[in-house]
């Protein structure tokens, strides 16, 4: 409780660090903030070409929205993913990158990984806003769902923050972490139903049935991936325009709470040792 208080009292510093990142990032570029849209846009183009045209993954139309545009369907899963992966990979480096600061000034260390969450969230809000506008133009009725989209965004941000805390500490002790992480994130992306619909996994899993004679099916293992549930939330809210299953909300809430509290626990345990270990 005392620790939470300490974190809360550093919120102004957190805000300043986020604005340092946000303002420093696109200094001296011609397109500035527009660059933050470039990455998801490029991914959208390439995935739409490959998985919309060459190997169509044929997601079903939005229900009840009736939308049937692959690029939009894709973005509903891709934007949460790129946010998550940006937070985790920049968060993992946040302590090592600020080693000098940690060794010279005493302040609440946790603001460093948290500030990467803030900076990524700032870009993400633009991306989601653009997506919501595109969905509306395409005929979706997403307006009433915006408050719930924001709740889902907050849940994912908390989950990502927890994961980033763990990796930031791990990276201090083992610098291999950041390299390992790029590989892990590759696997993770393809193990999440972002460029293919989850129905494909469900169908295959039903076809195969229980693994090795047990009642455990592929999809049961697959569902252990928390990102499956976060992506489902965003797809259903933004693309389908309907209220996600309360169980789905609950799963996301539990993952977010678990990741964040475990992350903070580990961080707090190691915080005092950081200046020496770096």
């Amino acid at each position: 409780m005392k620790y939470l208080n300490e974190v809360w009292s550093s919120r102004e510093l957190l805000f300043n660090l986020v604005s340092r990142d946000v303002r420093g990032k696109y200094k001296r570029t011609v397109f500035g903030q527009l660059w933050s849209l470039a990455n998801p846009l490029a991914l959208m183009l390439i995935y739409s070409l490959v998985f919309g045209v060459f190997f169509p993954s044929n997601p079903r139309a939005g229900d009840p929205s009736g939308l049937n545009v692959f690029a939009l369907w894709l973005l509903c899963g891709l934007l949460p993913w790129t946010f998550f992966s940006a937070v985790v990979s920049s968060g993992a480096g946040s302590l090592v990158d600020n080693a000098n600061l940690i060794q010279k000034v005493s302040f609440s260390r946790i603001v460093l990984p948290f500030s990467t969450v803030g900076a990524a969230a700032y870009n993400w809000m633009f991306e989601i806003a653009v997506l919501l506008i595109a969905i509306t133009i395409a005929g979706g009725f997403v307006l009433p769902w915006i408050p719930l989209v924001i709740v889902a965004m907050a849940l994912l941000a908390l989950f990502a923050a927890g994961v980033a805390l763990l990796f930031s500490i791990a990276n201090v002790y083992f610098r291999d972490t950041q390299y390992l992480l790029t590989i892990v994130l590759q696997f993770w992306l393809y193990l999440t139903p972002i460029i293919y619909p989850i129905e494909r996994v469900a169908n295959k899993s039903a076809e195969i049935g229980g693994l090795g004679g047990t009642p455990v099916r592929i999809v049961d293992i697959y569902n252990f991936n928390p990102m499956v549930h976060f992506v489902a939330l965003f797809r259903e809210l933004i693309y389908d325009n309907r209220f996600p299953d309360p169980l789905e909300w609950l799963i996301c809430l539990i993952w977010a709470a678990a990741a964040l509290s475990f992350g903070m626990l580990v961080f707090r345990k190691n915080e005092r040792n950081l200046a020496e270990a770096l």
Binding site: E12, N16, R20, R23, G24, K27
Partner: peptide, 17 residues
Amino acid sequence: HAELSGRDNVFLNGSIL
């Protein structure tokens, strides 16, 4: 932050301290 102005850095550094 090298790319930010002295003014911005005063506020940033102040809050770090």
